[in-house]
Amino acid sequence: MPERTSTAVLDLDARPSSWGVAVLDVVGHRSILMALARTDFQARYRRAVFGVLWAAAVPLVQAAIVAAVFSHVVRTSSVPGPYGIFALSGVIAWSYFAVGLGTGATAVVDGAELSDRVWFPRAMLPVVPLISGLVGLGISLGCLLVAMPIFGAAPGPSVLLLIPAVVLLVLLTGALALILAAAHVYFRDVRYLVQAALLVWFYATPVLYPAQLLGRYRPLLDINPLTGVIELFHAAALGWEPAMLAPVAVSVATLVVGLLVAAEVYRRYDRLFADRL
């Protein structure tokens, strides 16, 4: 028989959970997050013929195609290195962001059945695809590192920028996915708005073209919180430029504000989502 406890495990009234309780709830349910991420990954790739390799193959193929096409469109001379590496590093980051945001933004509604009878912090649901996507991201980045010397861009010390780049990418995607997933519970058109926004966003972000291509309009790109993330990936592959500091600062600021907003939203609304699912 399980050990019996006398303290209240569940103590609810009309007020939102306190910060302490909210944090303890998340910590206490962390094993569920990992289990969900693992099963999410297995469900996606286990029965596919090439298994885990698909996780990396999709962005790589995508990068190869767009690089081939865009190298004819973009004045690649403004890229500080081989264009293939520039495009690949950008596309790897972008595809993680797009998949993570696309699935994360609908995760609370899509996972409604999962938390219909048992409660765990809903904030975990949008985070699940971000964690399971890390495997694919890791393999893709490994491919990038292999491809760099082949294309004549031997990895230098700037490769270490991949670490803050990945952290910033994952956390920023997470913050946005959390906020959108909460909004999606109340407004079901968020699903389509996100899909549409991602299409526009892709071209509004210097993924496949260097930011300096815009000349004096470049500050407009810097407002885009994703520019900094993508620039960090470019920097890791082809070297840091001082002009990247402004967009990175914007990204970090967005991340901090986004995470605070997300935390407050989930603290207040977590158990109220069920009323609208």
Binding site: P2, R4, T5, S6, T7, A8, V9, L10, D11, L12, D13, A14, E113, L114, S115, D116, R117, V118, W119, R271, L272, A274, D275
Partner: peptide
């Protein structure tokens, strides 16, 4: 739904001293 903590009360207070779990219908997950 209130007892399982899936939703929050609009008024009043609910306390459960211990872990609570549904016995049936969990296969849906």
């Amino acid at each position: 739904k209130l007892l399982s903590g899936v939703t929050r009360p609009s008024e009043g207070r609910l306390r459960v001293m211990g872990r609570i779990a549904p016995l049936i219908g969990v296969g849906v997950g």
